[in-house]
């Protein structure tokens, strides 16, 4: 029996509990130890990646979905930190009539990704006076991500994260754009104003400050959008959510 054949049988035993594969590997109680380690580690990984989803759904409901996910999806990345990425979709699929479940999970995933995103210079308040704004171009910081929310999942997350009683799930009057990013090593989120959301979605690889002012004028019908642009620029620099393109 070659090494490849043994490892294929191990894979079948761990991920599918294939008894025939186990028999080919050999007898003894040790194989059960490995299978238990495999499943417990993946379940623990999902629980630690989605603590507020776990709190929202309750242990039994969350673990039922997690067990289904572990049965269906074997990890393939070198890092177990990648395994939880698809679980938000599994949660949303299990709760199609409760859209806050999927959105809460997506928010948790985005916050976790922001925590380990690439280190990169960001726009700060000290950059504001020294920058040639006729030439400067801005883009989202590497840690920043935009999410569309149709429910109050963010309010639920916030309450749960502070050990407070969460609000009842509710649909928003209209979808909003949420930004997640990292500031001073801490993952953050906030709801964007409508004009901010439109600008951030158009930043792409870089947008000049004059273009940002023009976009604000287009949206507001404002002949003098510079004031609003200045306020937003100061806010973005304070939050450190943008970078120079």
């Amino acid at each position: 029996m070659t090494l490849a054949a043994i490892q294929n049988d191990f894979r079948l035993w761990l991920s599918k509990a294939d008894d025939a594969a186990a028999a080919r590997i050999g007898d003894g109680p040790g194989l059960a130890v490995y299978q238990n380690n495999y499943r417990v580690q993946l379940m623990d990984c999902l629980e630690s990646a989605y603590p507020q989803s776990l709190a929202w759904l309750g242990d039994a409901a969350f673990r039922a979905v997690a067990a289904h996910h572990v049965d269906r999806f074997a990890p393939d990345s070198w890092t177990i930190d990648d395994y939880p990425a698809d679980f938000a979709t599994t949660l949303a699929t299990f709760y199609p009539d409760d859209p806050e479940v999927g959105e809460l999970a997506i928010l948790e995933l985005a916050l976790a990704n922001a925590f380990v995103a690439l280190d990169s210079p960001v726009l700060t308040t000290s950059d504001l006076p020294a920058t040639d704004w006729d030439r400067a171009s801005l883009r989202l910081a590497p840690s920043a991500k935009l999410l569309t929310m149709t429910t109050n999942a963010a309010a639920i997350w916030s309450a749960l994260a502070q050990d407070e009683e969460p609000p009842a799930a509710a649909l928003l009057h209209a979808p909003v754009t949420l930004m997640t990013w990292r500031h001073d090593h801490i993952s953050c989120y906030r709801t964007l104003d409508g004009d901010e959301a439109a600008i951030f979605r158009s930043l792409g690889d870089g947008l000049g400050f004059a273009d940002i002012c023009a976009a604000l004028a287009d949206r507001a019908g404002d002949d003098a959008p510079g004031g609003r642009a200045g306020l937003l620029l100061a806010r973005w620099a304070t939050e450190q959510c943008l970078a120079f393109a």
Binding site: L3, I6, R11, Y38, A74, W78
Partner: peptide, 17 residues
């Protein structure tokens, strides 16, 4: 040990013959 083969990662330290 081995932990992964193409398309599958066990995230456990598995024995080899």
């Amino acid at each position: 040990c081995w932990t992964r083969v193409a398309g599958f990662s066990s995230h456990d330290l598995l024995p080899i013959p």
